[in-house]
């Protein structure tokens, strides 16, 4: 029994020695192939990330992007100095300044701009179709106007402040509003010191003031004065962004970051399939931020944020999605 078994052992050992090498070779080969294949895929599916310089914001976005992209696509954070050394990208930029830096550093790079407004990115996208795109951060003005109407159902007249340079921002809105039973008038601010006199006239016209992302008028230096003047006249201000709602604007629609990141992922997938970015576009879903404290102060009964968003969506659906959305 012992011999037999010993023999058997030996046989096994022999047979083991004979088959190990080719197996090892296969394993090595497979590993190499796999590593090679992986190595081939990794550079093709990585994306550079050029942040805004605002660390909490950048980290928040990186975290969300990694959650959405990885493991299929890896995200590589790059500094401003590294931008010039990058190949053709693609590069995700955050904010207009990061976009401008990336664009200047490497004009052939494919760039997906995040947190940029339509007015800012559309010119670049038109000049370099497929190469430049953006997940639009501003909110379509018709959506903002309807957000105001959802809060003040009686509102029909919207006051708009603009400079000669920014007046075009509002033109699509003015064309769209009649379909929703509203109208708007632009009050042109000629110079810095005409802001408040023009605002006072605008407040006399409109049921509420709609603020667009127009930094010449709405910026941290002016917003407080604008808001207080409006509120002292018992008029509400809608927009321009969620951040301004925190500053005291009554409400604003906004694209949630997860929605924007999801759209960025779609854009990247389409880029990796075709080598071309689609045109810049807005996320599909918006939410509404409200400042309940301001509403209470102004004695304005406020529907819930979800109600407002639903009303806006319903209006937009009934009247058809509009051109600038």
């Amino acid at each position: 029994m012992e011999r037999r078994s010993g023999t058997i052992h030996q046989e096994r050992a022999n047979s083991g020695t004979r088959s190990l090498f080719p197996r090892a070779l296969w394993v090595l080969l497979l590993t190499l192939v796999s590593a090679f294949a992986h190595g081939q895929e990794s550079p093709a599916r990585s994306v550079y990330f050029a942040g805004s310089g605002n660390a909490p914001l950048d980290q928040h976005l990186v975290q969300l992007l990694k959650g959405e992209l990885e493991p299929a696509i890896s995200l590589i954070e790059v500094s401003e100095d590294q931008l010039a050394t990058l190949d053709s990208g693609p590069i995700i930029t955050v904010g207009p300044a990061a976009f401008s830096r990336a664009r200047q550093a490497n004009r052939s790079a494919h760039i997906l701009a995040m947190l940029v407004d339509k007015s800012f990115i559309s010119g670049f996208a038109e000049r370099s179709p497929g190469q430049i795109t953006g997940v639009l951060y501003d909110v379509p003005l018709i959506r903002q106007a309807l957000t105001g109407k959802a809060i003040l159902p009686q509102a029909t007249k919207i006051a708009l402040l603009a400079t000669a340079d920014s007046v075009e921002l509002y033109e699509p809105l003015i064309d769209e509003l009649p379909a929703y039973g509203m109208s708007a008038r632009i009050f042109l601010v000629d110079s810095n010191d005409k802001l408040i006199p023009t605002l006072v006239r605008a407040l006399g016209y409109g049921d509420f003031l709609l603020a667009a992302p127009d930094s010449a008028i709405y910026n941290p230096r002016t917003i407080k004065h604008i808001l207080l003047t409006a509120y002292r006249r018992n008029q509400i201000v809608i927009g321009p962004t969620q951040a301004y709602v925190k500053a005291g604007s009554l409400a604003s629609s906004y694209a949630p970051f997860p929605e924007m990141v999801e759209l960025a992922n779609d854009f990247l997938e389409r880029f990796f399939e075709s080598g071309q970015f689609p045109e810049p576009s807005y996320p599909e879903h918006f939410r509404v931020e409200v400042n309940a404290q301001v509403a209470r102060s102004l004695n304005i009964p406020l529907p819930s944020r979800e109600d407002i968003a639903t009303r806006v969506d319903r209006q937009l659906t009934v009247n058809g999605e509009v051109s600038d959305e």
Partner: peptide, 16 residues
């Protein structure tokens, strides 16, 4: 606008 927005963002986005 780019410059303005970037500054506005840097001032306002921490809240955002």
């Amino acid at each position: 606008t780019a410059f303005g927005i970037s500054l506005a963002l840097s001032a306002l986005l921490p809240a955002s």
